[in-house]
Design a protein around this nucleic acid. Structure first.
Length: 432
RNA sequence: GGGCGCGUAGCUCAAUUGGCAGAGCAGCGGCCUUUUAAGCCGCGGGUUUAGGGUUCGAUUCCCUACGCGCUCACCA
């Protein structure tokens, strides 16, 4: 029961369940003193579960209602529901006690229905395009596939240190080596990094890998998949996010990172082959930069500051600097650049893809280079995944790979501006 | 982790320069047989996040702790 209006010897109330909300009408004449006064008026509170049976009728205002001939008590609430008009607004209570949030705010329930539909539409798209859904280890002896710091845990019997995965990438590529030509996984990644409006320590990732294609093929694949989701969810390719109308109709804009940065800042980073000269160019224009950054990070910084926020309509940013992309294949005509794209919608990075690096010798060299660079920057050096390199040495076909955050996709489709609104139980500090 | 801001009744929010801590909803009692944010009359409800300090007097000013938010950093 979610509302009541008692008028002496008769009362109206609304009851609600998953199928909807309906008004009930209770009269002492009909129910008798025991049920009407002693049970309904005295004992039944808002939030209690009751069962009512009786004929349907329309009130003076035409609302379809049920005239209670019998009333049964089903279940009791001990706590009052939040304010019936204002609902529950306090962000901390809403996330710590999501059950109350869901109970009090129906639009919150809608978000997670939408989220489930997105995941199910993605599965339907990939399944019907010949992709095989697989499950790879969450507990990994060596973590890799991304730059994040991992959570660490321990297996008691084996007395072995294990890491919660930061990405699925290296395992899914092993499966491409194994002969599956189209694989995908939807699951949880864990990254021991800062929490923000678009970061939660655990988040849901989709990765898929497709043999005999490259990042150009992946771009078409991504357009097609996201549009299939939009069609299934909304029946159209336009949506509104944070007040901006966004049109998903393909083809999406494609622009190289070099051109995008050049347009936004006037700096053509290909004219500066090292961090020092690039830094001078940035300083000369009075732009922001991180003094200790490598050349790749400077480029990434320019992009993040001056380009990313402007990418409201769906956009593929192509061709990344090699030193921030150790798992992507070099461009044939430019050894400083890789065949990689990220796609952006509503000013947010939504996903990442490459033509996968399938040369085991180059891959080893790139890992070694990266670790040398990271050691120079005093960062955590990733352990070398020898088994992954061993896998590549059995031959991996040319392959395109792609990863995207389900949480951010849900933010986009549900028009939520923080990730905590699309995760049922986002991480919060414990109360002691 | 840094900076800034916030924390008042079960919920949503007030409180003047530092001067008796309030309202609506919810709850309790009463009236009310077509209401729907029902209405009317009455009542109860607070360690103002916690602890300390300044002051005759602190929700208000200061310090510390806790939590949350925004933001920066981190996130190949």
């Amino acid at each position: 029961m979610v509302s009541q209006r008692i008028m002496g010897k008769a009362a109206f109330a609304h009851i609600e369940d998953g199928s909807g909300r309906i008004q009930i009408y209770l009269k002492r004449d009909v129910l008798g003193e025991r049920v009407y006064d002693e049970l309904f008026k005295k004992l039944v509170d808002l939030g209690d579960f009751i069962e009512v049976t009786g004929p349907m009728f329309a009130t003076r205002t035409g609302e379809v209602s049920c005239e209670a001939r019998a009333l049964h008590f089903l279940s009791k609430t001990l706590n009052p529901l939040p304010d019936k008009w204002h609902g529950l607004k306090d962000v901390e209570t809403r996330t710590r006690q999501r059950y109350v949030d869901l109970l009090a705010n129906p639009e919150v329930r809608e978000v997670f229905v939408k989220r489930a539909r997105i995941v199910s539409a993605i599965r339907r798209y990939l399944d019907s395009n010949g992709f095989l859904e697989v499950e790879t280890p969450v507990l990994q002896p060596i973590y890799g596939g991304a730059a994040a710091r991992p959570f660490t845990t321990h297996h008691n019997q084996l007395d072995q240190e294990l890491f919660l995965r930061i990405s699925f990438e290296l395992y899914l590529k092993r499966l491409i080596v194994g002969g599956y030509e189209r694989v995908y996984e939807i699951g949880r990644d864990f990254r021991n990094e800062g929490i923000s409006f678009k970061h939660n320590p655990e988040f849901t990732q989709l990765e898929f890998y497709e043999a005999y294609t490259d990042y150009n093929g992946m771009m078409r694949r991504v357009e097609e998949m996201i549009c299939a989701v939009a069609e299934e969810l909304n029946g159209q390719l336009k949506l509104t996010y944070d007040g901006n109308e966004i049109d998903l109709t393909p083809p999406w804009k494609r622009i190289t990172m070099r051109d995008a940065i050049c347009d936004a800042t006037g700096i053509d980073y290909t004219l500066y082959s090292d961090a020092t000269s690039l830094m001078q160019a940035i300083r000369a224009r009075g732009l922001r930069y991180e003094p200790k950054a490598s050349r790749g990070k400077l480029i990434d910084g320019l992009f993040g500051d001056y380009v990313e926020p402007t990418l409201i309509q769906p956009t593929f940013i192509m061709d990344y600097p090699i030193d921030i992309s150790p798992l992507a294949k070099k461009k044939a005509d430019d050894p400083t650049t890789v065949e990689r794209f990220e796609y952006f919608i509503a000013g947010m990075e939504m996903g990442n893809a490459f033509t996968e690096l399938n040369d085991p010798i180059d891959q080893r060299a790139r890992f070694v280079e990266l670790n040398a660079a990271m050691a120079g920057e005093d960062e955590n050096v990733h352990p070398l995944d020898e088994d992954f390199l061993h896998a590549l040495s059995f031959g991996m076909p040319p392959t395109g790979g792609f990863g995207t955050g389900i949480d951010r996709l849900t933010m986009l489709f549900a028009d939520r501006q923080t990730i905590r609104e699309v995760i049922l139980f986002p991480h919060l500090r414990s109360l002691d």
